[in-house]
Write a protein that binds this DNA or RNA. Structure first.
Lengths: 250, 250
DNA sequence: CGCCTGCTTGATAGGATTCAATATAAGTGG
DNA sequence: CCACTTATATTGAATCCTATCAAGCAGGCG
């Protein structure tokens, strides 16, 4: 079973043997966490950095009114709280959605990683992709209709899971409830249910019990005009791997 | 007129004289850009980093359907594209909303800034706050009703402008049209108009011709349950200014 | 003065929410 | 292993919020 973090980071650029070993060692001891368990809560200031090795987690916030908004799904290879080095306190929560394997990487280990130039850039790249993903979610909730919102979300998750070898072209596991989907895309659970039925009726996707079956990925992507640029994936290899160099640009 | 970037960064932590001079020098030569002008477009890969010194800019994306979503307002002291060092191409656009003064900071200057530990942390802090702000916008669009959405946006902008000395407790300039507001909060321009009227009727705020008058800031904040934690401002001074130190935490 | 942009208003339609009830599945404990 | 309880999914009906369409108004500018 390949290291999902390594797999992700190498999309950005090649790592040397030392870098790889470093990453591998860092993920050596993962612990298993039950589903629906908070890993970090708002106001806390964890000393270590959490990383998802297996399973599914999410960032979320609960409003005074009791409403919940999910900001991000964290799939294998994703960091939970790299910002720990700078910000005093978390401004949101992170929880598991399914049984997951989590590693807690000590601060010092992260610092040592950042001391390796290529790894440092790869980590930075990962956080920038997180931010770009967040922007796309804002587009999703701000501009798209219910059905297309959900279609777009599935397209994204599918691609991100593919990167870490957790999805093929026909299906993938995505263990969330319809209520959680609703809190993700800013819709009511009832409407999510109906939108899912509508997508099934169009013979695009079938989602039940945490399994997404893609009946026609191409049509699904067309429906929501899915443009994966913001994930900086395939293009990732072409992304700037250098720092100070001043080469000409188009 | 104090340097807005310096003013912002010092919220995070103290800078030494050398750091300050460095930042001051970096902002020395600003150019004036007309309103509604693109600074950077999707797909581009600017060689320098843009920073807003005066005026107002925004991040945005246009969908194939022609819809526009605004992701962020950039006020004096905000960077436009620090990610230039890592990502090959912009995945969104940045434009001026009003006449603005912009500096283009060479890559080398940024690299020199990052070489200064305290400045590096302050820059990192700034990008993390940007991300947290984006999360809050997702909450806004995903969970709140029209009126409260707009109220919350005004609360945020007011606070961010206050930090750089561009707002007092009674009013501030915010030169956007109602259409732009609509593209920000994911509503139709008509509905934005009506929501603004409603806020005026409650004697909370009056927004006309780019001037926001706050009739009762306390009541406005209560209406939208405004919690500025996510901006990490006042708490900013207490945020972690250290890197590797391993001090006890509560 | 006329034009353009931005704001305002009214009427209508539609998408999404809410409420409520039912069905189905999943666990739990005796 | 079955009965009970809880979580999740599904369905229908009524309501509400927001969008759309369309028209009128105001102010700035050449």
């Amino acid at each position: 079973l390949p290291n999902p973090l390594l797999r992700k980071l190498e999309l950005f650029g090649p790592l040397n043997a030392g870098d790889k070993k470093f990453v591998d060692d860092a993920l050596a001891r993962a612990r298993t966490v039950a589903a629906h368990t908070d890993l970090i809560s708002e106001g806390q200031s964890p000393s270590d950095v959490h990383l998802v090795v297996e399973g599914l987690c999410c960032r979320y916030k609960i409003l005074p009114s009791g409403q919940r908004q999910i900001f991000a799904y964290l799939v294998p290879g994703d960091f939970c709280d790299l910002n720990v080095f700078i910000l005093r306190a978390m401004d949101h929560n992170i929880a598991t959605l399914a049984v997951s394997r989590i590693v807690e990487i000590p601060r010092d280990t992260i610092l040592a990683m950042v001391a390796r130039p290529q790894l440092a850039r790869a980590l930075w790249w990962a956080t920038l992709v997180d931010e770009a993903t967040l922007r796309e979610w804002l587009v999703n909730v701000g501009q798209r209709t219910a059905e297309i919102r959900i279609a777009h979300l599935f397209c994204e998750i599918h691609l991100r899971l593919s990167v870490v070898g957790q999805a093929d072209d026909r299906s993938f596991f995505f263990p969330v409830t319809q209520v959680e989907l609703a809190d993700t895309v800013g819709l009511s659970p009832v409407h999510v249910n109906r939108s899912l039925q509508s997508l099934r009726a169009r013979d695009l996707i079938d989602f039940k019990k945490g399994l997404v079956e893609l009946h026609d990925l191409g049509k699904l992507r067309k429906l929501c005009s899915f443009n994966p640029n913001y994930l900086h994936l395939e293009g990732g290899k072409l992304d700037r791997g250098d720092f100070g160099e001043d080469r000409p640009r188009s």
